[in-house]
């Protein structure tokens, strides 16, 4: 669509390679993809092991959880909401799995479904309070964050537990312990929800509700349903990530694998990937690339030998820099289109 506008605007169409380049640069994901590639080139040059298989597995395993949660975060941001509680839902979900299997003898797959359903239920509560009681999602999910953390610590007595026996083996490998398991899940989930956001009614209405809440309602779109649905999707994805991470770390620990870090990484990934906090626009593929950038940064600086403490400073500056660059690039993009 940018193509035709361009052709009418200019007398002679630019040569093909330039057109392809232009079209690429106008995609929202372009800048973050370039950043990811530049980082990889830089770290490859600085460290021989960066592209080794083992390290690629490391990067993949660090990318996947952030990317999967970021999928939900993008849907929420596009519909004009946010979820700060998703990380603690991730920490809670493997305990739900553990309770169901070890205390009630529920079969593994059913227990997985149950855990994800309960996670989704927390999303339902978030969405209900936001849409029906009209409390801003920032505050609501802050509340549920602490409430779920309390539930988690009370029910787990703040002690880690081993992976339930029926989960061990094939299921554990398959859901998260296998070297490429989590990233495979991430890519599949990203692909599915990319299609949902860009090619289905649900996606269109998500954009509408975030872009023009009044207008969307006037057109008869049920904004509450869309938002509640996106809260549920986000929480369920958070739950899945929690279970994946527990399988990978080989223990169910209330203190790792979730909490604020996962939430903040996912929001960062979404924002770095080109999703606006204002609602109405966002990209899920961009969020995957954003998660990749974050994981690469952390991994690369580790390899070069920066201390873990320095990494946060660098990460913060990198997020700010990429956001400023993004702002600048999208202004350029807009100028180029009109």
């Amino acid at each position: 669509m940018a193509d035709t506008a361009e052709r009418t605007a200019e007398e002679a169409p630019p040569r093909a390679p330039r057109r392809v380049l232009d079209a690429f640069l106008r995609r929202r994901e372009a800048s973050v993809l370039l950043v990811a590639l530049a980082l990889m080139v830089y770290f490859r040059a600085s460290s021989d092991v960066f592209l080794s298989r083992d390290n690629l597995v490391n990067i993949a395993q660090a990318t996947a959880p952030t990317a999967i949660v970021a999928v939900g975060i993008v849907l929420l941001l596009v519909s004009g909401e946010i979820d700060l509680s998703v990380g603690i839902v991730a920490a809670f979900a493997p305990f739900l799995l553990h309770f169901a299997i070890d205390y009630y003898g529920v079969p593994v797959l059913l227990a997985l479904v149950l855990a994800l359903a309960l996670a989704a239920f927390i999303g339902l509560v978030n969405g209900f309070i936001v849409t029906q009681l009209h409390v801003p999602s920032f505050v609501v999910t802050l509340g549920t964050f602490f409430a779920v953390q309390g539930l988690l610590l009370i029910t787990s007595h703040a002690y880690p537990v081993p992976i339930p026996e029926p989960v061990q083996g094939t299921f554990q490998t398959w859901i998260g312990a296998g070297p490429w398991a989590s990233i495979t899940w991430a890519v599949v989930i990203v692909a599915v929800f990319h299609v949902v956001l860009t090619r289905t009614r649900w996606g269109l209405h998500t954009i509408s509700v975030g872009g023009n809440p009044v207008g969307a309602t006037e057109a008869g779109i049920r904004a509450s349903r869309i938002k509640i649905g996106n809260f549920m999707i986000t929480s369920a994805l958070g739950g899945l990530v929690g279970i994946m991470e527990a399988a990978r770390i080989n223990t169910i620990d209330p203190n790792i694998g979730g909490g604020t870090t996962l939430t903040f990484y996912a929001i960062s990934a979404a924002v770095i990937g080109g999703t606006a906090l204002a609602g109405g626009s966002g990209t899920i593929v961009g969020a995957l690339l954003g998660a990749l950038v974050l994981a690469t940064l952390q991994n690369g600086f580790n390899l070069i030998g920066y201390s873990a403490n320095t990494i946060y400073l660098i990460l913060g500056l990198a997020i700010l820099a990429s956001m400023i660059a993004n702002q600048y690039l999208s202004r350029l993009r807009r100028a180029g289109k009109s």
């Binding site: 269109l204 954009i207 872009g211 023009n212 009044v214 207008g215 006037e218 109405g280 626009s281």
Partner: peptide, 11 residues
């Protein structure tokens, strides 16, 4: 509607 109920972000 007076405010048109158009979604700017959509085609």
């Amino acid at each position: 509607y007076q405010d048109l109920a158009l979604i700017n972000e959509l085609s």
